[in-house]
Simulated assay, not measured.
Amino acid sequence: MAKTRTSRGATHNRESSRFNLPEREADGDWLDAREVIDGAPAPIRTSVTIETPKAILTRNRSPDIPFDRSINPYRGCEHGCIYCFARPTHAYHDLSPGLDFETRLFAKPNAAELLRTELSKRGYVPRPIAFGTNTDPYQPIERDWQVTRSCIELLSACRHPITITTKSDRVTRDIDLLAPMAAQGLAAVMISVTSLDPKIAMTLEPRAPHPERRLAAVRTLSEAGIPTQVSIAPVIPSITDHEMEHILERAAEAGARAASFIPVRLPHEVAPLFRAWLDTHYPDRAGKVMAIIRSLRGGRDNDPGFGSRMRGQGPWADLMRVRFHRACNKLGLTGGALNLRTDLFRPPPGPQGDLFE
């Protein structure tokens, strides 16, 4: 049996057929033969390509998502979470939702400039801008590119509300911006904790920070006065579902004010990638896991329907909800949705600055 790549989530570079993506062939480079010679997969380096979009705000009208606009500073995500629902977006670039999604990344260094243009438009109506809705805004390349920070700096100056979802403790780097915003009712953070088991996390989210570092970030953010929630997303039956109560207990201890969860979703190319991951890491229970997922998704690998896609259906979904709500009530994780302020917003100053300050 071929050895798997360490520190990567996908077991292979599955091609997409939805956009006529051609099958790739080896180009004869000596690295192509390394697996045969050395008996181990050749390492894949992460590459970053500059992307220059014409707009940075993504709008949505989905009835089951609590925001209508978002910013994705990066495309692709080095965290390599095997379940990531954003993986199929790489197929639009003629790239694989598999290993390409984790290793061939795109950065948008002009994001803050585009955001300034958007916020300066006459008639712009402020509502919370969500970060981390597609790929993680604090993935490892943010350390050098700082696209996320540049956007937060602008939003802070404009007193514009922001929400952040991340798996990285790197978010604490920006407390100097987020804490003053939170004091004005302008910022909230959600930290995703899928498993507390290092062995599970190592294969499930291979390049995301250790779960203990994420919980430490929850504590640090909370102590800084930033409203912080914990998201158990996704919950994977027979892999991580048994940890739900323990994760919530640790979240409450760290100072989280509320929590949420989403049963695992497997849209488009994610389903076969996830199946291959199960066959590699959990062959003893792969069939059971997929059977439960199908029961959650109306007999399919995935249910794209509004409402049900985030909640699941059937007895397994009902059981998860009962367990989750009982634990939250017991632990006081009942902070609920935040109503971030929009009345403090002021447009960015023009070329001559704000003459009326």
Rank of each mutant, 00 (worst) to 15 (best):
K3C: 14
R5E: 09
N13S: 15
N13Q: 15
G28W: 02
L31E: 15
L31T: 14
A33G: 03
V36F: 07
A42K: 14
T46N: 13
T49G: 13
I50W: 11
T52D: 13
I56L: 03
T58V: 10
R59L: 11
D68Q: 00
S70Q: 09
S70I: 02
H79P: 14
H79G: 13
G80E: 05
D94C: 05
P109C: 12
A111V: 03
L114F: 08
S120P: 02
S120H: 03
R122A: 08
Y124I: 14
P126F: 12
P128V: 10
G132F: 12
Q139K: 10
L154C: 06
P161E: 02
I162F: 11
T166R: 02
K167V: 01
R170V: 05
V171D: 04
V171C: 08
D174P: 09
D176N: 08
L178F: 06
A179K: 05
G185D: 08
S195P: 00
I200K: 07
A201P: 09
H210S: 06
P211F: 00
T228H: 04
D241H: 06
E245H: 10
I247L: 04
A259L: 13
S260L: 14
R265C: 02
R265L: 05
L266Q: 01
H268M: 01
L273F: 06
L273D: 02
L278A: 07
T280Y: 00
Y282F: 11
D284Y: 08
S295V: 11
G298K: 08
D303A: 05
G305P: 01
G305E: 04
A317R: 01
L333H: 05
L333F: 08
N339M: 13
P349F: 03
D354H: 12
E357A: 15
